[in-house]
Amino acid sequence: MSVKTHVWDVAVRFFHWSQVLLLGGLWYTGNEGLMAQHQLMAYTLAALLIARICWGLYGSTTARFRHFAASPIAALRYLRHPKPVLGHNPAGAYMIFALILLLALQLLTGLATFDNSYISDGPLVQYLAAEWVSLASSIHKVNIDIILICVGVHVIAALWHSWRYDNVLLTMITGKTTQQYTSSMRPLIKASWSYFVIVVVLLGVFYVWQGEMLVKFI
């Protein structure tokens, strides 16, 4: 019987799958004009993303950005000779960083997006010059397509890697892998309670700032 190695903590897995659900919900509500729901989901994703960035600085070994940050050469070498990796592989790391930056850009531009409606307008619209609001609105519309393309590439890569090498999708669900690693290689997995504390605090801040008003329009 193979011994499983703990790879991903609860915080990383919760953020990963919540992000998937929220992106789907944001895409749907944006297209359907359900702007109150759209903005509530956006604030929820913002809280999760900010907490994930914090967790990437002090969390479990495999959650930390410095653990999976790699040079372009390392990423290219990995693409030429893929193999099971404990945590994010060098090529996948670039996708993770790209998605974090794109999500941050989407959320920030959403705060300054003008849509001819009191509910739809971002809360920063009233404080910015018209040209900045127009730029933010344009970026917001284009950037979501870029995010969805990146997500599609990420999913295809994960399916291919799971088929050819090790089941990274199952590992992201269970947090454990059956790949064999020495005890010295096994990562430090921390309890995720502080991640969820940050999420709850941020959700409270966003609710007081905008959420309470948005709930009235649901």
Rank of each mutant, 00 (worst) to 15 (best):
A91I: 13
K176C: 02
L103H: 02
Q210T: 05
L26W: 01
K190S: 05
L148A: 14
S117W: 01
G175R: 06
A93G: 15
Y195E: 03
M1L: 11
C150I: 01
F114V: 09
A98C: 05
A130E: 13
T177N: 03
F15A: 00
W27Q: 04
E131T: 14
G24I: 07
V20T: 07
W209K: 13
P84W: 11
L34Y: 10
A42Y: 03
F206S: 07
V85Q: 10
A158S: 15
T113Q: 10
N167C: 06
L57V: 05
P84I: 07
G152R: 13
L21N: 04
F114H: 14
F97Y: 04
L86G: 06
F97N: 03
V205P: 02
A93N: 08
Y43H: 08
I73C: 03
L148Y: 08
T171F: 00
A104R: 08
I189G: 11
T29L: 10
D145Q: 13
V215Q: 11
S117H: 01
C150N: 11
W193D: 00
Q179R: 08
D9L: 09
G211T: 04
I50W: 02
N143V: 12
Q37V: 02
L214D: 06
L135N: 12
L148M: 15
W132A: 13
R13E: 12
T29S: 15
F196C: 06
S162I: 07
T171W: 02
R66H: 09
T177I: 05
A51C: 00
A158W: 01
Y127G: 03
F68V: 13
P123Y: 13
A46K: 06
Q19H: 08
V7G: 09
S162W: 00
S71P: 10
Y118S: 14
L148E: 04
F14I: 13
Y43F: 14
